[in-house]
Amino acid sequence: MSEAILRLRDAAFQYEDADARAVDGVSLDVAPGEFLAILGRNGSGKSTLARLLNALLIPSAGSVEVDGIEVSEQRAYDVRERCGMVFQNPDNQIVATVVEEDCAFGLENRGVPSKEIRRRVDEALREVGMLDRALASPSMLSGGQKQRIAIAGVLAMRPKIIVFDESTAMLDPVGRKDVFGLARRVNREEGVTVVWITHFMEEAVQADRVVVMDKGKIELEGTPREVFSNVTEVLSLGLDVPEMMKLSRDLRGAGLEIPLDVLTVDEMAEVLGKWQA
């Protein structure tokens, strides 16, 4: 594995009025170009972790390094430029009344010259397939389209990493697939490292690696196959596992020796089909 682009060492954070740490000693390396999914029930600390990666919060103990820069008050803007963030509520992260103006917001804040902003905004809007809506008002767009605009705004900054903090939680299945697909494409085609925080295990199974958090700590880590085959444990952490994994657990319980790590319908049909033959 090449040099990690995100490097956390015993990172911790405690909110002022809380009696426990929201993130409690997390150590994690993320490789450049990786698609990492973070799962965990509400209050498990995953959103706090996301905010540490973007210097919205500064670790109270341990360290967080983003592309070689240690997250601190002083370097906050350098960190944010390298690590963009897309939030959950599509409405509450759009600043401007015109799509392209919103897309330009980050670049304007960084003092990029107008001509360069124009070029990058158009490029980003084309990338997310919203160039034809550049002059539209965000209030006329669907939730999924609003999230595309939010992604374009981040892409225009040309970050190396994008953190998606439950960015599909408020969308319907069509919008969800759409936004997830876009994140995957940006990851594959542009080589942007993605940290994808979600409740939906059907998204997590498509990640390169899955981290499960609980009570501010990393509880499970590995490929989706490895993590989800711990059916009982994952369920007890308040999460879901793919239906096929539950099925193989049931079948094994009844004496049918199915492999534990069957993830998809096609795989299951394949396995059972072979048995029949």
Binding site: N54, L56, Y77, R80, E81, G84, M85, F87, V95, E100, E101, A104, F105, G106, L107, E108, N109, R110, G111, V112, P113, S114, I117, R118, V121, G153, V154, M157
Partner: peptide, 13 residues
């Protein structure tokens, strides 16, 4: 998160 820090040094699309 999008680097906003007031009007100073801001440019415009």
């Amino acid at each position: 998160a999008r680097c906003y820090r007031g009007g100073e040094g801001r440019t415009k699309l």
